[in-house]
């Protein structure tokens, strides 16, 4: 076991944060230049999207221990809100995107009471919510949601603007989790994840803390959905509420390590590249492999890459978050 003085820890913390913020800075410059340099916008967009999704999933799953199996519900709500506002109400995306974030938060508020259920019931309701929203969007009148054919908003939007909006949301999400690890709320959440009852007995308002995490998580996921609609210009109920979106989010976050800041980022970067390079060739095999990876991760590396590193080599904690 290692022993550290407070001085060492303060220094290590400074190094950690300098490294991390430096990395974010590099990413912003690099990604920001992609549209200008005519890079592969789709690939970089999907990297940003999935890092944000995995990070926002991490806020609820990694920091509080809840697994919303219907996570795609927030994303889908965001997608639809943005698309309906832009293509039917005809407002600017700059208003539609914040509204899509708001829609996600509202749905999260509506289902906030499920947080007190926990365990089996929470899992069931959350999964069912995504299934039912998908059906409602598909069956609703076509002049509202476009029915099963979906909506097209391409002629109202500029792709590059969507790209930069995603970059902004990505940075905001990363800043939020970074703040969360250092903040008192973050400590409360991790205590709840480790042992909710003990945290309660130590004076933490479990329900309220969880609610904050839940809303934050929903906010970023629904923003992701809204911006995805902006960037791609089209949507339909099958893809907007696709169970694979939940699956990918879970896998990317878990592969890196839930409950760490860097884990979901690293997990996503590795797996999105692999996804783009290999799995794209075999669309059917793709979801089989996703399922297989979830199973293997759960059975053999539940803490993910970063989490396992931290567990095996406690000294790593000084350098990674």
């Amino acid at each position: 076991m290692s022993s550290l003085t407070s001085m060492d820890e303060a220094k290590a913390s400074r190094i950690r944060h300098t490294l991390w913020f430096g990395l974010i800075g590099v990413v912003v410059l690099w990604f920001g230049s992609i549209p200008i340099l005519d890079g592969n916008q789709s690939l970089y967009f999907s990297l940003m999207l999935w890092v944000t999704m995995a990070t926002s999933f991490n806020i609820i799953a990694g920091f509080t221990g809840y697994m919303p199996f219907g996570f795609v519900a927030f994303y889908g709500m965001g997608t639809y809100t943005a698309a309906i506002l832009v293509s039917i109400v005809k407002v600017s995306p700059y208003i539609a995107i914040p509204a899509s974030g708001l829609a996600g938060v509202l749905i999260a508020l509506l289902f906030a009471p499920t947080l007190r259920l926990g365990g089996i019931y929470f899992a069931i309701v959350s999964l069912s919510l995504a299934v039912i929203l998908q059906r409602i969007m598909g069956l609703a009148p076509e002049d509202i949601t476009g029915g099963s054919g979906g909506l097209n908003l391409g002629q109202h939007t500029v792709r590059e603007q969507g790209f930069y909006a995603m970059l902004i949301v990505l940075v905001a999400a990363l800043a939020t989790v970074t703040w969360l690890t250092r903040s008192r709320l973050g400590k409360a959440l991790r205590a709840i994840r480790d042992d909710a009852q003990a945290a309660d007995a130590m004076g933490i308002n479990v329900q309220r803390s969880r609610l904050y995490a839940w809303l934050l998580s929903a906010l970023f996921a629904s923003l992701c959905g809204g911006i995805q609609a902006w960037f791609t210009g089209a949507l339909d109920p099958v893809t907007a509420f696709d169970v694979l979106i939940t699956a990918k989010t879970v896998i990317y976050a878990m592969a890196g390590g839930l409950g760490t800041v860097t884990g979901p980022v690293i997990g996503t970067v590795i797996l999105v590249w692999v996804d783009e390079l290999i799995w794209r060739q075999f669309p059917v095999l793709n979801s089989f492999l996703l399922g297989l990876i979830i199973a293997l991760l759960i059975l053999f590396m539940p803490r993910g890459i970063i989490g396992t590193l931290m567990q095996k080599y406690p000294r790593c904690r000084r350098l990674i978050m």
Partner: peptide, 11 residues
């Protein structure tokens, strides 16, 4: 019932 994935200080 300690918080097993937090440092002792954070506990």
């Amino acid at each position: 019932r300690i918080f097993h994935r937090m440092t002792l200080i954070d506990n």
